Amino acid sequence: MTKPMTLISRVAVFAASMLLSFSALAAAGGPVQHAGTDLSDKASLQRGAQLFMNYCSSCHSLKYLRYSRMAEDLGLTEEEVMANLNFTGAAFGEQILTAMPAEHAGDWFGTVPPDLSLTSRVRGGDWIFSYLKAFYIDEERPLGWNNTVFPNASMPNVLWEMQGIQRPIYGGKDEATGDPLIDRLEVASPGTMDPLQFDQAARDITAFLEYAGEPVAVKREAIGVWVLLFLAFFTFLAWLLKKEYWKDVH
């Protein structure tokens, strides 16, 4: 009995620790909104790729994704990718890397911006969508920006021209620290997009990062329908065969 009980105890402790970790992570940031992404929408993925390359790829890489694979999955030609989405001079078959030297990134941001290939698999699409929308101006931060979903993030709001500048509206205080709590964010200076348009832009970037985290997901979902149809047809044939075998058995 000793070994089974020890194993059960370890599993229970592990489960409890994981639950506490996820609870702490959820409590660390602000509310998360539903992204509503659709990986079957190639137009959304193409827009997301364009936005990512123009606004994010100068700092963040996608080292597990190649330009050629992206072109194949998103229905783009080599010429379109190399002319509009490749700003580093990399070859078509190479990985999507940033041109920013790591030593300069450390000087400018205090840390090297992370690779975003697997962010959607770690954080989830809803988190990315909410994070992109949650930047607000904060004069006390080194870069002048903060984020309600990921407080004290080192990243500036690179999408501010489209979204506009948000300022926090405070309501109540933290019982433990006495610090004011942010009730909501309010657009103080409008951007080039209205809220619905910016939501779609953030959704497109989120969809592209979800695709980048698991490129095979697009094909897997398409193939999955045919697999289910085959299984249904095979089940029907098996039922007919069973009926034929057992028709004379009483």
Rank of each mutant, 00 (worst) to 15 (best):
K243N: 08
S154F: 13
I182A: 06
G110P: 13
E94F: 14
G93Y: 14
M162D: 02
Q197N: 04
I128T: 08
A134D: 04
L74Y: 03
A90P: 02
A24E: 02
L241G: 05
A91V: 09
L143R: 15
S117A: 09
E175I: 11
L39N: 12
Q50Y: 08
S154T: 13
W108P: 00
S23V: 06
K42F: 04
Q95H: 11
A83Q: 14
Y55T: 03
F87R: 15
P114F: 10
A212N: 03
I8C: 10
M155P: 00
W160C: 05
A238K: 09
V122N: 08
C59E: 05
M53A: 14
F230L: 14
L116N: 00
K243P: 00
F198D: 06
L76D: 04
A24F: 03
N86V: 12
V187N: 00
N147R: 12
M18V: 10
F109Y: 15
M100C: 01
P156A: 09
S154Q: 12
Q50S: 12
Q200F: 04
I169T: 14
D115H: 06
L20F: 14
S68F: 02
L25E: 08
K247L: 08
G224L: 11
N152A: 15
F92A: 07
A105F: 01
L118H: 13
L116F: 08
M162V: 00
R69F: 01
T192Q: 06
A238V: 05
G125R: 00
M162N: 07
A43T: 04
M82K: 13
S68G: 06
M18Q: 13
H250G: 07
K3A: 06
V187E: 00
D126K: 10
T235Q: 07
P101T: 09
A91P: 04
A212Q: 02
V227P: 00
T98G: 07
S57D: 10
N84H: 15
G191A: 13
R123A: 12
D194P: 09
E94I: 12
R141C: 10
V187C: 02
L237E: 13
E175C: 05
Y131P: 00
S58I: 03
T177Q: 07
Y136L: 05
A202D: 04
M162T: 00
A90G: 04
D41I: 02
S9K: 15
